[in-house]
Amino acid sequence: MIAKRTTAFGLKMKHQASLLILLAPAMIWYIAFNFIPLIGNLASFTNLKSVVLPWKIVGFDNFIRMYKSPDFWTAFWNTLIISFFYIVFYFPMPIILALLMNELKNRSFKRAVQTIVYIPYFFSWVVVGSIFITLLAPNRGIVNIIIGFFGGPSDTYFMASTQWFRPVLVMSYIWRQVGYGTVIYLAALSTVDLELYDAAKVDGAGYWLQLIHITLPSIRNTIVTMLLLNLSAVMRIFDQILVMQIPAVYSVSDVLRTYAFREGLDNRAIGYATAVSLLTSLLSCLLVLSMNKISKAIFDESVL
C-alpha cells in the first residue's frame, strides 16, 4: 500500500518535472527579455548614457528634465491627439464594414471582399509606408493625379506636410488594420441568433431597430474587447510612426515612444529615454486597467 502510494507520488513528481522542463525555455526567455528589462526601468533614475559608460544615480532629475522639456510635451500631446483620432476614426470602421458585409447574400463575393481587405494586415509598416509614399508622391502619385484631374493642385507633398501628416497616419492605419477587425466582427455576427430577426420582423421592426435591439447587443462583448485592445494598442503606437515620420513632421507626429527612441538611441541619453519609456508604459497600463474597470462596471464584463 505504502509502496504503491510512493510510486504514485513518484509518478506525479516525474509528471511535474517534465511539465516544468517544457515550460522552462519560455520562462527563461520571459525572465531575460521581459522581467530583467522591467528592472532596467530603474535606469530612469540614473544618468546612464550608453550601456558601458560609468553612471550615477541622479534621483528624479530625468523626470524634472522631462517636465521642463517642450519636446516632451509636444510628444505627450501628440500621443493623446493621435490616439484620440485613431479611436474616433478607426474603431467604428471594422464594425460598419462587418455590418455592410453581413448584408451580402452572395457568399463568394463576401469572401472575396474579406480576403482582399485582410491582405495589408500582413504587410509590414515599412511596406505600408512605402505604398503610401508612392501613392501620395507629389505630381506622380495616384492621389495627386486624381486631384490634378479634377483641377486641384497636384503637387501636395502629403508625407511632409504638417497639415496632412496626421490624416495620412489615420488613413494608412485604417487601410492596414480594418480587415483584421472586420474578420473578428464578422465571426461575432455569424453567431447572432437569426430567429431573433424573424421575431423582430413579425413585430414590424425595421433595419435600424433590429440593429439597435438585436445586432449590436449580440456583439457587445466583442465590441468591448476590441475597444480595450484598441486603447492599449493606440497608446503604444510606435512602429507605424517611426517608419512614416520624417523630420519635417516631427512637430505633429512625434509620440512618446518615438521621442524616447530618438533620445535614447540617437542622442545617447539612455537614462532620460528610460524615464520617458517608463512613463509611457505606466500611462498605457493605467488606461487599460481603468477601462477594464469601467467595462466591468457598465457591462459586467471584464476583459482581462
Binding site: 520571459y30 535614447g264 519609456s277 509611457t280 498605457s284
Partner: peptide
C-alpha cells in the same frame, strides 16, 4: 506563471529597457 505572462500584456516593458538588456 499565467499571472507573470499576463503582466507582460498589460505592462509593456518598453523599448529602451529592452535595448539596455540586449546591450548588457
Amino acid at each position: 506563471f499565467m499571472l507573470l505572462i499576463t503582466i507582460t500584456l498589460i505592462f509593456d516593458v518598453g523599448i529602451i529597457p529592452r535595448y539596455i538588456v540586449v546591450s548588457m
